[in-house]
Nucleic acid binder design. Structure first.
Lengths: 332, 332
DNA sequence: CGCTCGTGTTGAAACGATTCAATTTCGATG
DNA sequence: CATCGAAATTGAATCGTTTCAACACGAGCG
């Protein structure tokens, strides 16, 4: 169907070895021959078959990135950072969206293992460290993104979520709010769990202060709206006066519901803090106070570490932790 | 480094052909042998080498999807639809973000050609139809997403952007606004250009009505904010009283700037209509009136058409055009 | 003139799977 | 018990590239 290196060799009147050298080690070939071969290549519309190349060469130039919610701008920002860094090192990044499904996550890991990608950047959803260990033994390194390694075996680039949770709750407390609510879930997701722990720590530093947990099934706008409606319907005395959402999507959902129930004012009746500081936080109904993470930088750093490990598999794991930062706007 | 099919055959005491059959045509193999081979596979941790498989089999099960702005929720919604549909047909979707760069777009096309992906779902940024034609001749079909084919050669799944622009502008006009502004760009992007054309058509149906174009360099929140600041700073008599943004990102940027300049009220002084109806439109400072496109459905449909063409390359191109829909909220 | 060296070039082996014609096995049948 | 056919299994050929030992050819040197 399509031209192979053999056809090119024939057309140019040289051997297949020479054609291969033109593409991979041009310095070994005389200028005349290079020109001749290149003419043949474009005449035939030859395109290297990556499968054959990889089979023989044993390594690919593709890096896979897996996130569990590609619709969250926070992750697309990270991906953007990784792509830019990869372009510098000559790698290509392909993205897989695991859509908060462990099954799909494992499915993609299988796919990438079969494809022998050069490395994996992953923001894990399910319990995958065992699987990643197997991949590592197999020769495919991974770097965890936005999450630390339980096993200490993997490099990771993350943000101190406990600190972030602490900052968020402290801010609400410093505004005089004493009946707090945490909205997010599932709590098993470390990012969510850690932020809650940080918030609880902050709460324990104050007397007569409560922190109630509203667990969601996912960190989405929709789930935020659901909880927001429930909170709007609560008795005033039961209702928290300060809310901390596990991420901005949830916060925006809450905001929608609270504003729609027009007997409530944000921040007067309920102060609200989000997390991630996505672009849309600025333009929310009530511009959102949020915890900013350096998303692009996370992506770049993760890719650089992965590239190092791909080149030298004996590298010890690195652990980079960035500090989050409070961005104050109107909502709290 | 890792076990091959030969090792498995040795360990199980059968031939390589049998191992291959266990994986691809289990019905041809006796139950005992299947069990024996599977035991060997897991004992050795064997993983099929996709490069070798693809080289011999000549076809892959991977479909590539390329979008020029993965940070736009509209595109992630489309991707989501495509992924769900692909899972049904046994394909995997990998995503590439061309980041509004023609260079990167062509680079990914090269990569996917070398990888011999089974097909390409693309929302093109630059002029790529010639390149896609070459790919098609090469055996890789593509389906255009959110854009029709100039050459009529490719299937496409899109939304009638001229109609959408018409609906948006008509809505503003029906509210009595007569000095309109269109914000978006570059105008060469068909989605943007068509929406403008539709708006101009609507404007031409009214007397004494003006439509001014504010061109942006990209359809982002940032660019929207930039134009919004400029508009806020205009003399009241020059200022448009109805704005139509090429997409919701731009609209949200505009909104931010207009609200920040607190002498202006949306919609009283300026009515605003966006496009795409992304999730965040509902939770904007002023909930956004927008033009809804059936994003997930677009993704599903595109993937199904692509799958058909991948199986039968002689299929004539199909052209599916969905109709957009006005969603009225507070901003206009 | 014979020898060495360096530069280009060659062609066959190897990568790891799939495929398919050929062969073996085995149960059923006359 | 011999024979037939279906079912199971084998193993060599194949895909398109890269790699590498071997070779060809001059140029330079003693």
């Amino acid at each position: 169907m399509s031209a192979s290196i053999k056809d090119v060799a024939l057309h140019a009147g040289v051997s297949v070895g020479t054609v291969s050298n033109v593409m991979n080690h041009p310095s070994r070939v005389s200028n005349d021959t290079v020109a001749k071969v290149q003419r043949a290549i474009s005449a035939l519309g030859f395109v290297r078959n990556d499968a054959a190349r990889q089979l023989r060469a044993g390594e690919s130039k593709t890096i896979a990135m897996m996130v569990f919610d590609a619709a969250n701008p926070f992750f697309t920002d990270i991906a953007r950072g990784a792509e830019d860094a990869a372009a510098k090192d000559g790698f290509s990044v392909i993205l897989a969206n695991t859509s908060e499904s462990s099954t799909r996550e494992l499915g993609y890991l299988d796919l990438f293992e079969e494809q022998r990608v050069r490395g994996i950047l992953i923001s894990p959803y399910g319990e995958v460290e065992d699987r990643l260990q197997a991949l590592k033994k197999f020769g495919i390194p991974s770097v965890l993104v936005d999450r630390v390694s339980n096993s200490q075996v993997f490099s990771s680039v993350s943000v101190d979520d406990v600190a972030g949770g602490h900052i968020a709750a402290s801010h609400l407390l410093s505004l005089g709010r004493r009946t707090l609510g945490f909205v997010g879930g599932p709590l098993e997701i470390p990012q969510v769990g850690d932020r809650l722990v940080g918030a609880q720590q902050a709460a324990s530093e104050y007397q007569e202060c409560s922190l109630r947990v509203f667990e969601t099934t996912a960190t989405t706008v929709l789930e935020g709206r659901r909880i927001g409606e429930a909170i709007a319907a609560m008795e005033p005395k039961e209702r928290p006066n300060g809310l901390f959402a596990a991420n901005d999507l949830v916060a925006l959902g809450l905001l929608q519901a609270l504003v729609a129930a027009n007997h409530l004012n944000v921040p007067r009746d309920i102060a609200l803090v989000g997390y991630d500081d996505i672009d849309f936080a600025t333009s929310a109904i009530v511009p959102l106070t949020s915890i900013r993470q350096p998303s692009q930088l996370i992506g770049e750093t993760a890719l650089e570490i992965l590239a190092e490990e791909a080149l030298d598999p004996t590298q010890p794991p690195q652990k980079v932790v960035f500090q989050p930062e409070l961005v104050i706007r109107a909502s709290a």
